[in-house]
Simulated assay, not measured.
Amino acid sequence: MAKLLYSARTADGQSTSGFVQAASARDARDQLVRAGLTDVVLHQEPAIGMEESQLAGLSPAATRQLAQFRLRLMRNPGLATVLQEVARRCTLWLVVDGVMLAWGLWSDRWLLVGAAVALLAFPFLATVWGFRHADRYQQLLKAYSLGRWAQVEALIDKLGSARKRSLQLDFDLDVRRACIRARQGQLAEALGGLESWRSRLAEQRGLYEGRVAAVCASAEDRPGFLRLMGEAHAASGGEPARALDCALAQARFGDVQQAEDMLASVDTALLPPHAKGFVLWTRGVLALRKGESESEPLLAQATAEFLARGDQPAVWTSLAFCACDHAIALHRLGRRDQARLTLNSVLPILRAHADKPLMEMLNNEVLATTPAD
């Protein structure tokens, strides 16, 4: 079962955080409520919870410390947050080294000064060296979002040594390489190359199907994308995150009524905080397809949610497609200049990831110029 990161409040109003082992998001929340916690927020979904190796052997205190660090890292991802955590955990080490350094300087013992400086730097240099894989992965996400496929391939190769440390990273790299193959017209080969993952991810219900759907999307196979998103939802046992993904897929490319029914079934209290943008996006697309004027403010709010996390390359593709839908809504309201400005801001990503029907529609409508303009 997955171990999900959560934050909540205790009976006396104190904030707390940790990991809860559960088979579903609902089960996780129910466990925490039974334990007397309130204001429960789940920051992970069962399919992508913490891996067992990341928590093995940790004491309760160390587990709570890790949970707090993970939450800080979600709010402020990057090396600076990691180095701050290193400084916090090594406080005693740093104090002792500081005393050594001061003593060495005062007594002109330069060997002691050198040793103190080396010891002070060691935990930070070791962290920077270990962070190189995370930095490469961020570079990969940027390159992938912008369609720099050769750079993506090179970074996947460089991350090879990090694969054995994380099953999720290993799968993610294979999926991204498969997406590149699918774009090159090799969909069958790309899907076949991922088949072995089906059994390896059997306990992470719906993850395999949900990620492989992206391979079909890369090959501009909308029916395959919709089918796999439905299979992901079914395999997950109706997990809210998978239901939301399926609702958004149907809203964009499938049946409006099915999308509305799926969205209505989602208990948004069980979704991670970052899912708010996807909920608004789905509602906005449904309103857009039904010709309702409220589509524009909904999509504007959704785009703002993604923009708030715009420093994270992982959201760039979603941001681009959401902004694209917002531009379409603006254009249909006659706000052409604003529509073009919105669309132009994400065009590099759309050109890398949008399928031909969408790009043709954008070129013929939103981006087209007319004498009236």
Rank of each mutant, 00 (worst) to 15 (best):
A2V: 01
L4C: 01
A8M: 10
R9C: 12
R9H: 06
T10F: 05
A11E: 11
G13V: 09
G18E: 03
A25V: 09
D27Y: 03
R29N: 04
D30W: 01
Q31N: 06
D39S: 13
L42K: 00
P46A: 03
A47M: 10
M50L: 06
A61P: 03
A62Y: 00
R64L: 06
Q65W: 02
L66Q: 12
M74R: 15
N76E: 15
L79C: 12
A87K: 08
R89G: 09
W93C: 02
W93E: 07
V96W: 05
A102Q: 01
W103K: 02
L112A: 15
V113F: 05
A115Y: 02
A115F: 08
L120S: 15
F124E: 07
A134I: 08
R136E: 07
Q139R: 11
L140I: 12
K142H: 14
Y144H: 11
R148H: 14
A150L: 02
A162P: 00
R165V: 08
S166H: 07
F171P: 00
F171E: 01
L173C: 10
V175S: 04
R177E: 12
A178F: 03
C179G: 07
R181P: 00
A182F: 01
E189L: 11
A190W: 05
L194P: 01
E195M: 12
E195Y: 02
S196H: 14
S199G: 06
R205S: 08
R211P: 03
A213M: 03
A214Q: 14
C216E: 04
C216V: 04
L226G: 03
L228Q: 14
A232C: 04
G238S: 11
E239H: 10
R242E: 05
A243W: 04
V256F: 08
Q258R: 14
A259R: 07
A269Q: 13
L271R: 02
V279Y: 03
R283A: 01
A287K: 12
E292F: 02
S293L: 12
P297I: 02
L298M: 10
A300P: 06
F306G: 00
A308P: 08
P313I: 00
V315E: 06
W316F: 14
S318P: 04
L319D: 00
C322E: 02
C322A: 11
D325V: 03
H326L: 13
A327E: 01
A329M: 12
H331L: 00
R332I: 05
R332G: 07
R336D: 08
Q338H: 13
A339Y: 05
S345K: 04
L347Q: 10
P348Y: 07
I349G: 09
A352G: 12
K356L: 13
M359G: 04
M361P: 01
N363I: 11
V366E: 09
T369M: 10
